[in-house]
């Protein structure tokens, strides 16, 4: 097993233990729920990084097509969608108990939801095309569109908006740098790395399984021929 997988385990166990026991400032409204920062926010960091990996592989596919690159892009997108969905669910729950509502028409919330819909359409598109090469090429092109749409939805429109309930006005749309005190940083940064690595790990196993499956099919085809 590769070293970064051990690192993933250490970082996430550290996040769970210190995330619950570590020092956090006493804040009104948020109270103890501010510890969600170590779990909800890294979902979006991980999603963005893994979706970036996905679109990079799609671009590589279009430059030099190979089933391998298609698999890498597809499995990365699936993990990104998983992390994004978990981010939406946890964010909604958190909103219920701090803002008093499961959902509100906030530019950040809606932007994230629309991003997820755009990426779900990527999976729908893949499912709709039978020919493997056509599926790979169409979905690679669509993936570029999806990422190009996600960037303004997640990072530009929230900065243009005049008001938002969500932390981080006028800067990073996820949170304000003043929301973090130094004790929280010691848990938050490892949490971001840990959760992102977990996403990478899941993607890696899924890709390797897909490659092995492909090899077995190839061998069967040769035996039949």
């Amino acid at each position: 097993m590769k070293w970064w997988k051990y690192l993933t385990i250490v970082l996430l166990l550290y996040t769970a233990v210190m995330g619950l026991l570590g020092h956090v400032p006493r804040l009104a409204i948020l109270n103890e729920t501010e510890r969600n920062l170590y779990f909800h926010v890294p979902m979006w960091f991980g999603m963005t990084i893994i979706l970036l990996a996905s679109v990079v592989n799609s671009i590589r596919y279009l430059r030099d097509p190979s089933p391998r690159l298609d698999t890498l892009a597809h499995e990365s997108a699936k993990t990104g969608i998983l992390l994004g969905t978990l981010g939406l669910l946890t964010g909604s729950l958190w909103a219920r108990y701090t803002w008093g509502t499961w959902w509100t028409t906030d530019v950040k919330l809606n932007g994230a939801a629309v991003t997820m819909l755009i990426y779900l359409a990527y999976l729908v598109l893949r499912g709709a095309v039978q020919d493997e090469q056509q599926r790979a090429r169409l979905s690679a092109i669509y993936n570029i569109f999806a990422f190009a749409a996600a960037i303004p939805l997640l990072f530009i429109m929230p900065r243009l908006a005049s008001a938002s309930l969500h932390p981080g006005m006028g800067g990073n749309p996820g949170f304000s740098k003043y929301d973090l005190d130094s004790a929280m940083r010691l848990v938050f940064y490892p949490a971001v790395i840990g959760w992102t690595l977990l996403g990478v790990w899941i993607t890696e196993v899924a890709c390797r399984l897909a490659f092995v499956k492909e090899k077995i099919y190839e061998k069967q085809d040769k035996q039949l021929a």
Binding site: Y6, I9, V10, L13, Y14, V17, M18, L21, G22, H23, R26, L27, A28, I29, N31, E32
Partner: peptide, 24 residues
């Protein structure tokens, strides 16, 4: 892997509560 985590948890006990502040 677990031992350093348990040691860290001990240090976290130092957190103290106070009245007149947001409820934790």
């Amino acid at each position: 892997l677990l031992l350093p985590l348990l040691l860290l948890a001990g240090a976290a006990l130092a957190q103290t509560g106070a009245a007149d502040q947001p409820e934790m």
